[in-house]
Computed example of a mutant assay.
Amino acid sequence: MPDTTDAAEGLTVGQVSKRLDVTVRALHHWDETGLARPSLRTAAGYRLYTAADLERLHRVVVYRELGLGLDKIRHVLDDPDSDVTGALRTQRRQVAERIERLQRLGTGLDRMIEAHEGGLPLTLEQQAAIFGPRWDTEGPAEARRRYGDTTQWRQYAERAASRSPEEWQAVTEEVAALDRALADAMDAGVAPGSAEAGRLVERHREVFASYFPLTRQMQVCLARMYESDPGFAAHYDGVRPGLAAWFRRVVDADARAHGIDPDTATWQGES
């Protein structure tokens, strides 16, 4: 049945709660803090709100829904000299700032979802401009199918989601520069196990950190894949014939120098 009690007779806390859609707990709190107290009490000591009390509560609810804090609401209601319009304008600016932050958050969430699901939060046009016309646009999706359940994929997606096209361009240039450095070192006869080879191995780990952290054991597994996987081998041998096999020997020698047996290295191993 609808509540037809006349406010002039006094409304109970429960009746006010239903009428204003405010919790009883909130009404008790406002009473205890003096923000909105009932003016009447029954003989049994129960609170009763008058029509004037109800009007004040209406105002409290309105300002609370606009986002004003209880102290600010008290100031607006009780101080005749309070600048209500100024308080509302300040609140409006703060709301606009929160909306902007939430919009940025929404964009970030969209990019994170796209990175986790698709591997690369870039348009096809951006991918072509950054990675070149020979870029395989299906590559990220294939990587997602192969590695999507791994820790490294999640780490990659977290980095990818926050990276701008310009930052992707910088990563691409770093990778290309590393490829050239590896090819030049092979041409120059840099021997596996040498200090220069060790610096190149460390540089590879640093560059690869753009995707996810790479331990030395994981690097051994990756170099093994560079040589055995037709796609990776074609890339490195396209930079310089024999580069994939040479790089694996360099990585294996560096691993041995750090106490790691390349033949037993595992992807999840610690460096």
Rank of each mutant, 00 (worst) to 15 (best):
Q268S: 14
V250P: 00
E65D: 12
D252E: 13
G34F: 12
R98N: 13
E173T: 10
V62L: 11
D78N: 15
E32L: 01
D254W: 09
A234E: 15
R47H: 09
R240N: 13
R25F: 07
T123I: 04
Q155R: 13
D3W: 03
A233D: 06
G108E: 05
R37L: 02
P262W: 04
Q94N: 05
G259M: 05
R92M: 06
R92H: 14
S82A: 14
A177L: 03
A233P: 14
R41G: 02
L27A: 12
R47I: 07
R89W: 10
A244E: 11
G198P: 13
R180V: 12
Y236A: 02
E196I: 00
W135Q: 07
L214N: 08
A245C: 00
Y236K: 05
L122H: 11
T12M: 12
H29V: 12
A8E: 15
A128R: 09
Q152T: 11
A170C: 10
Y147V: 14
E65H: 14
A128K: 01
E100T: 12
T215G: 11
R240H: 05
D254K: 02
E202W: 01
G269E: 08
T264N: 03
A8T: 15
A51D: 02
R205G: 00
A160F: 08
V16E: 06
V220M: 01
W30N: 05
T12S: 15
A185W: 10
L20T: 06
S228C: 07
P241I: 11
A43M: 02
S210Y: 03
R163Y: 08
D237Q: 13
S164E: 14
A44W: 01
C221A: 07
D237P: 14
E270V: 12
T50S: 15
C221V: 15
P241Y: 00
T50A: 03
T5I: 02
D110F: 00
M218T: 03
M225K: 05
L77E: 14
R19K: 15
L70S: 06
L122D: 02
T85P: 00
L68Q: 08
A195V: 11
T42M: 04
P80M: 05
A177P: 11
D110M: 01
R224H: 03
A177C: 10
I113G: 00
A170P: 00
T107S: 09
D71E: 14
A26P: 06
W267I: 13
L182W: 00
L120G: 07
L48S: 03
Y147G: 13
C221I: 13
L200R: 00
A52N: 09
M218N: 04
Q219D: 05
G118P: 06
V24T: 14
M225I: 09
Y49P: 11
A36R: 12
R216K: 10
A157M: 09
T33K: 09
A157V: 04
V13I: 09
L109C: 09
M186R: 05
K72F: 11
R47F: 03
P213A: 08
D261E: 01
G106S: 11
A195Q: 10
G238M: 02
R249E: 07
D229S: 09
L35M: 07
W135K: 00
A188C: 01
A157E: 06
I73E: 12
A223P: 07
L66A: 12
A197W: 02
G119L: 05
Q126H: 01
R249P: 00
G118R: 06
V16G: 07
L124R: 07
R216P: 07
A157H: 08
I73D: 14
V24K: 10
S271Y: 08
V239P: 13
R64C: 01
G34V: 11
D3G: 09
